[in-house]
Design a protein around this nucleic acid. Sequence first.
DNA 1: GATTTGAGTGCACGCGTGTTCACTGAGCGA
DNA 2: TCGCTCAGTGAACACGCGTGCACTCAAATC
Lengths: 216, 216
Amino acid sequence: MPAQAAARQAQKERTHEALLHAALELSRRYGFAQISLRQVAGRAGVVPTAFYRHFDSMEQLGLALVEQSFATLRRMIRDAQRDPHVFDHIIDASAEILVDAVKQNRAHFDFVARERVGGSPAVRRAIQHELDLFVSELAIVLARLPHIETWSSEDVQMVARLFVRNMVSHAEEVADLPDGRPDLEERIKDGARREMRVIVIGFRDWRSAARRDDDR
Amino acid sequence: MPAQAAARQAQKERTHEALLHAALELSRRYGFAQISLRQVAGRAGVVPTAFYRHFDSMEQLGLALVEQSFATLRRMIRDAQRDPHVFDHIIDASAEILVDAVKQNRAHFDFVARERVGGSPAVRRAIQHELDLFVSELAIVLARLPHIETWSSEDVQMVARLFVRNMVSHAEEVADLPDGRPDLEERIKDGARREMRVIVIGFRDWRSAARRDDDR
DNA sequence: GATTTGAGTGCACGCGTGTTCACTGAGCGA
DNA sequence: TCGCTCAGTGAACACGCGTGCACTCAAATC
């Protein structure tokens, strides 16, 4: 065993984490479906067969990465909701949160964005399911907002869907960004802000137009 | 040689097409980056080494598929522009065109949607470039529309970007659809229609709100 | 009709892969 | 201190891969 002064369980956990981290890094470069068990084990500093002490297969590792990624995402949203600023300026705050969060957890976002349509069917399905869940969760948050609380749940769901789609799309952009170009980051943040504004305004006015149709 | 009554060039072309078609079909199931030269050759009814008579590598085949896919897409848009109905009801027509086109060229759309963020860097870059081109082309078409012709080119570009993003997103949905479920197709068509309406209305009103800001 | 061309063949190679199995030796409970 | 547990080892395997090379033999050219 490489390490010297460590409890048994702690060492196992460390290797477990090293495997996940290695897979995440390699996925960023080549895409999850392209990387091999041996590459992951090698980068984690462990012999290929040791991999099986932690995961049954690469597929299981992939699903673990999905879980880890969405845990990050959820923690982020939960923190954001505690900030009262968010309620007053939902759009500006969302754009800020989005870009910052993606920057800080670039690897996880990149993984989700890529493997959402990637080559591993199991991982793809898991991400799609998590995203659907996330849309519903966001809809619940939105429904509590002033003005929106009177909307039908179907309408709120649709706005949430547009928001999440936008989030995924911009997350892709940020993830593709080279490091140390704050100007480009600001540009994306600005684009996200404007597009969210368009969605909110468009939705409000489309709704009132539809209501007028109902009246006549 | 398998075929009997064919000129030499015609037979070569047929094999060439068979390779492209085989790659497209296999990509649909496994993703382009996962499939091997041998699989493609095998499905095209040809020995692996014969592959090299047509493409230098799988990467070159991938780029050829990108070209083919966008040629399909462009032909479609060009045809649509000839239909006067499109100018009057741009949104309804777009939704209709989108769903029909994806249904009829599901393989190509699926390829683009998937490999846009797929495992082959060269293919990914090529698709991203074509998509950027497509946004600009759509912006030119939109700019000629009534009401829109007064907008700044930057604003038109942004609407085009939102439209294309929506198109890609819905193309993904349609491509994932099981066959023979016209109800689901109609649902997606409806969603696309409503979302495009939201974008157009939201943009118009956001623009006039901004103009009011300039005035004061 | 003889000669050239070139699409498709068949074999061989070295390599990286996932998985098997018997093993080692440090950590930990008795 | 003894003995069990089990994370990590290392050799071996069968397999599919991309690619090189010498080949065949019908179509095209002369």
